[in-house]
C-alpha cells in the first residue's frame, strides 16, 4: 500500500488549493488567504523520492495558478525549488523533531510568497503590495509553521496504520546458537 500516502498527498493538496478560494470570513479575519502548500511540499520532500517531490510541487503550482490571475507557471519555481533544496539537504534535517518541522514550515510560508512576489515583479505585473503584505507574510509563515508538524503527524500515522511495516530483525543469530549434546 505504498501508493496510499502519495495519493492522499495529492488529494489533500487539491482540497488545500480549493479551500484557499473559500472561507472568505477567515480571510477577512486574518487579512489573507492561508496557503497550505509550502508545508505540504516540505513534508513530501522529506519523506518521498525526488520524482514524487518534483511532481507534487509542479502539480500544486499548476493548480494554484489555474485558480488565480497569475500567468500559468508562475508558482512552479518557488514551490519546486523549496521541495528540491529540502530534498537535497534531507540527510541534514532532523525531520522527526517538532521544532525543525515548525521552523521549516515558517520559513517556507514566508519564503514561497516572497519569491513569487519577486518573480511577478520581474515579470512586470502590477500587484497589491504595501506594509500590510508584511502582516500577510507573517500569518502565512505562522500558519505553515503550525501546519507542518500536523502534516507529519497525520501522514506518518496514516502510513503506520495502512502500510506494511518492515519486520524488525530478531535478536536470534543461528551462528551464535549454543548447541547441546554430542557433536
Amino acid at each position: 500500500m505504498t501508493w496510499l500516502t502519495p495519493t492522499l498527498l495529492f488529494v489533500v493538496a487539491w482540497l488545500a488549493v480549493f479551500f484557499q478560494t473559500q472561507f472568505h470570513m477567515l480571510k477577512l479575519l486574518v487579512g489573507t488567504p492561508i496557503g497550505l502548500l509550502p508545508s505540504l511540499v516540505i513534508y513530501t520532500a522529506l519523506t518521498h523520492g525526488i520524482g514524487l517531490s518534483a511532481a507534487f510541487s509542479i502539480v500544486c503550482a499548476l493548480w494554484l495558478d489555474a485558480l488565480s490571475p497569475a500567468r500559468l507557471g508562475t508558482s512552479i519555481p518557488p514551490l519546486f525549488f523549496l521541495g528540491f533544496f529540502i530534498h537535497l539537504r534531507q540527510h541534514l534535517i532532523l525531520r522527526d523533531q517538532l521544532y525543525a518541522q515548525f521552523w521549516l514550515g515558517l520559513g517556507a510560508g514566508i519564503g514561497v510568497p516572497l519569491v513569487t512576489l519577486c518573480l511577478l515583479n520581474i515579470g512586470g505585473k502590477e500587484l497589491i503590495v504595501g506594509w500590510g503584505t508584511t502582516w500577510q507574510l507573517m500569518v502565512s509563515g505562522l500558519a505553515n509553521g503550525i501546519l507542518c508538524p500536523l502534516w507529519f503527524w497525520f501522514f506518518d500515522k496514516l502510513r503506520l496504520t495502512f502500510e506494511y511495516q518492515p519486520l524488525a530483525t530478531p535478536p536470534f543469530r543461528p551462528d551464535r546458537e549454543i548447541k547441546y549434546g554430542r557433536h
Binding site: T21, Q22, P33, T116
Partner: peptide, 13 residues
C-alpha cells in the same frame, strides 16, 4: 463561488 487564492490581486469567481 470562489475568491482569489493569492494575496497579490483582488478577484473572485
Amino acid at each position: 463561488v470562489g475568491r482569489d487564492p493569492t494575496i497579490w490581486w483582488r478577484t473572485c469567481t
